[in-house]
Nucleic acid binder design. Structure first.
Lengths: 116, 116
DNA sequence: TGCACATATGAACATTCTTTCATATATCGG
DNA sequence: CCGATATATGAAAGAATGTTCATATGTGCA
């Protein structure tokens, strides 16, 4: 991070400064990247998509996705701490669902983008 | 991935099957997660945000973000191969810009979500 | 051609993630 | 209370990722 910096005759210094001013705080963009990172794993995206169809228990998700119960549980915990899913217990079973319908719209926007 | 599977009296089997049918191909959701993964790094998100304000050269980005030229270049290559940015050369300088205004709208949707 | 500047890139290193394995916790039925 | 089932979790292993360092490529100018 400490290369010498290009010596360009300061033509761009004004631009850099202007862009700097118009950028959100670094902390905000960090949070944003953390938010997107959660969607950046195929197991988690598949969990989220599945939950957009219906609430499901851990075991159902495990069967549906062909991923071990333990791995699903770990990912659900991450999704929970990111406030993307919520859960309710019914006897021995725990049902998970999307915390917010908005989540699904984000997934859809991504899907639309992939379709170009 | 080979735990025994919950023995639940098949109450949920129909549900699992239905959800399975309504899910996009695993490959599609994998691509989707790869797409989101690109946004899931603070350096890349900051690059993308900066480029949404103006096209910039590698050196400007390096200065603006306080990240080494090499690190910026590596990330730009990743962004290029994900088709999120394009570039044009002008003499010694290479200017990068968003490949598509749509990219910025995705960032904004994320930001809106963070604001709850 | 030779030098300086801007950018690109391969390899190594450090860190972070994801899954697995073993085991703990919670709930229900007998 | 005990055993069985469903889920959670800590630790370790393995894979993937981001940065650095050294160096290569490409361009302009003297």
């Amino acid at each position: 991070m400490d290369d010498f910096i290009c010596a360009e005759e300061k033509v761009h210094d004004k631009l850099v400064e202007d862009v700097d001013c118009s950028m959100p705080d670094e902390a905000v963009l960090c949070e944003l990247s953390e938010f997107f990172r959660v969607f950046g794993d195929s197991t988690r995206i598949r969990i989220l998509y599945a939950l957009s169809r219906s609430e499901m228990c851990v075991c159902d998700l495990s069967k549906l996705l062909g991923v071990s119960q333990s791995a699903i549980s770990h990912q659900l915990q991450l999704l929970r701490s990111s406030r993307l899913v919520k859960y309710r217990r019914e006897g021995k079973t725990v049902f998970y669902s999307l915390d917010d319908e908005h989540i699904f719209s984000i997934i859809n926007i991504g899907l639309e983008h992939l379709e170009e």
